[in-house]
Write a protein that binds this DNA or RNA. Structure first.
Lengths: 245, 245
DNA sequence: TCGGTCCCGTTGTCCGACAACCAGACCATC
DNA sequence: GATGGTCTGGTTGTCGGACAACGGGACCGA
């Protein structure tokens, strides 16, 4: 005799699931407003409190966006909605430098290649600007970690590939800040980093896909070498991402 | 005169943020139970309804897990919690085959390489089993798309890299089901797929990193070729992922 | 044209209540 | 002694109703 595990879902989950189903089915399109909470409650035949609980989940996933005090609006979740959660999840799992680095070694060169293929002039300019700002920060003796993270994020934006953007973002957000302790102990690492960044941007600027990919790969490999050289453990978990205040 | 955008957050968000903060800070560790809703409400000085709304968001992120009707337990979000959301987000953004394929081309060979380095015997056996089950399905003339997806998921599990697992999963969940319409029109594609899968597993089994990576790369490149050959558009959005019922 | 005022719909929050459910303790029966 | 029943307390899930805060639109007066 076979028993299928029966799972009565609480009402608030059914509300989430149903609204999500309708959005996915296309009955509700991004940009459209959801009915008011009272209408939803009446429609589902549950209390408004229950609807509100159900809505919160979708809201935190970026599927609904709420303009303070206004009606809820359907939205297509963007990388910015999901990446911080993913980064946090990885940090909580105590992901190691080695794990992150392996993914970066696969994705970053691809990002550079695609950026060389698709980057708009404004994006190349933004990359150059980040390099310049990094120069300024280094001249003041401060840490370039945040700008390093930004540089790589900009490259993957310039690749115009949303799947790549989403896959890469949490990795970059954890990996590059891990370079923080590297700077004081390995001063020449900054020069090498800036040189590599410059080569990447130049290659992107002249639409040299192979060159962009190659320099990015060298840069990532070099990053690991620097990390090892100062005696940091590759198999130690990285620090959780800094949270915006 | 400078104004910083002031953003009074609703109470339920402050509750989410505060609980999340405590978890991240380590005051509450995975496995531990959260105080009861009534206690939290008393502690924060808000109503229980407000606490419940705040909790829903964390729950949907996998940070809290709720054993039906029992106290909430802190958990470290796993890839399985986040990947479906990511896949859905990509589908809603109407990501194209080309975008997904580029990421797969970067990640899958790396996954195969790392699997060759780290796979446990049981994992190699599971891979072989999936190939056998695919043979059976093909013999019945059915579509191997689901098993193809599973095969690649197993390879990346065998890589023992949690960052890779999280980055790759949503891509695989969307990309391989896109092969569905390919089968009837290109019968030999299945043989090529199975042959490639076999080569990958063999290479993993003998710890041949280069071989595993190479065959996986060929397999991915071949996939795109098949997709083009049957006249499917590379720049068309892929179908949203099937939802488990 | 600008600012003020009023009204109305909607959200955010609260309160109090109760059924459903789980776990554990305790007890009756065989 | 093992099995199953009953009771009880703590917790969650859901409900109904209530009200302040706020945004937006309409309307009005300077």
């Amino acid at each position: 005799m076979e028993f299928r595990r029966l799972q009565p879902q609480p009402a608030y989950r059914q509300v989430s699931a149903e609204i999500e189903r309708r959005i996915l089915a296309g009955a509700l399109k991004p940009g459209e407003a959801l009915p008011s909470e009272a209408e939803l409650a009446a429609g589902f035949g549950v209390n408004r409190s229950t609807v509100r609980e159900g809505i919160r989940a979708l809201e935190s996933e970026g599927l609904l966006r709420r303009a303070a005090g206004k009606r809820l609006v359907i939205a297509a979740p963007r990388a910015a909605d999901l990446a911080p959660r993913a980064a946090r999840a990885l940090a909580m799992q105590r992901v190691t430098f080695e794990e992150l680095w392996s993914v970066a070694l696969a994705l970053e060169p691809m990002a550079a290649r695609l950026a060389a293929r698709h980057a708009a002039p404004a994006e190349v300019a933004a990359l150059a600007d980040t390099i310049a700002r990094t120069d300024a920060v280094l001249a003041r003796g401060e840490s370039p970690a945040a700008l390093d993270t930004e540089f790589h994020a900009l490259v993957s934006e310039a690749a115009h590939n949303r799947a790549l953007l989403l896959s890469r973002e949490p990795v970059g957000a954890l990996l590059y800040p891990a370079a923080e302790p590297l700077m004081p102990r390995l001063p020449q690492a900054n020069d090498r980093m800036q040189a590599a960044h410059r080569h990447v941007v130049e290659a992107i600027g002249r639409r040299d896909e192979a060159g962009a990919e190659l320099w990015m790969r060298r840069h990532i490999v070099d990053f690991r070498r620097g990390y090892e050289m100062v005696g940091l453990a590759l198999d130690a978990p990285v620090a959780p991402p800094a949270r915006p205040e």
